[in-house]
Computed example of a mutant assay.
Amino acid sequence: MKACHHCHVTIESTLIIGTTTLCPSCGKPLHSCFNCRFYSPGSYHDCLEGIEEYIEEKTEPNYCDAFMLGEYSKEEQKKKTDAKARAEAFFNF
Results as ranks from 00 to 15, higher is better:
M1Y: 07
A3R: 01
C4Q: 03
H6G: 05
C7P: 13
H8N: 15
H8Y: 14
V9K: 13
I11S: 00
T14M: 06
L15H: 09
L15R: 15
I16H: 07
I16S: 13
I16M: 10
I17R: 01
G18L: 10
G18E: 10
G18W: 09
G18K: 08
G18F: 02
T19Q: 10
T19C: 10
T19P: 13
T19R: 09
T20R: 14
T20S: 13
T21C: 04
T21Y: 13
L22N: 01
C23L: 06
C23Y: 03
P24A: 13
S25W: 02
S25P: 05
S25I: 01
C26A: 12
G27I: 02
L30F: 04
L30T: 02
H31C: 04
H31F: 06
H31Y: 11
S32D: 00
C33E: 00
C33W: 00
F34R: 09
F34V: 14
F34M: 08
N35S: 07
R37V: 04
F38H: 15
F38K: 02
F38L: 11
Y39G: 01
Y39R: 04
Y39P: 01
S40C: 08
S40H: 02
G42S: 12
G42P: 03
S43K: 14
S43I: 03
S43A: 15
H45E: 08
H45Q: 11
D46E: 11
D46V: 00
C47P: 04
C47S: 08
C47G: 02
E49M: 12
G50N: 08
G50C: 10
I51R: 12
E52G: 05
E53D: 07
E53W: 07
Y54F: 06
I55E: 08
I55W: 02
I55A: 12
E56P: 02
E56Y: 10
E56I: 12
E57H: 15
Y63W: 06
C64S: 14
D65V: 12
A66P: 00
L69R: 06
G70I: 00
G70Q: 02
G70K: 01
E71S: 09
E71N: 13
E71R: 14
S73P: 01
E75C: 10
E75H: 11
E75M: 13
E76Q: 15
E76M: 13
Q77L: 15
K78N: 08
K79V: 08
T81M: 13
D82F: 04
D82L: 11
A83M: 03
K84G: 05
R86P: 00
R86N: 11
A87T: 09
A89F: 06
A89L: 06
A89R: 10
F90H: 09
F91R: 15
F91K: 11
F91D: 09
F91Q: 03
F91H: 08
N92T: 15
F93I: 10
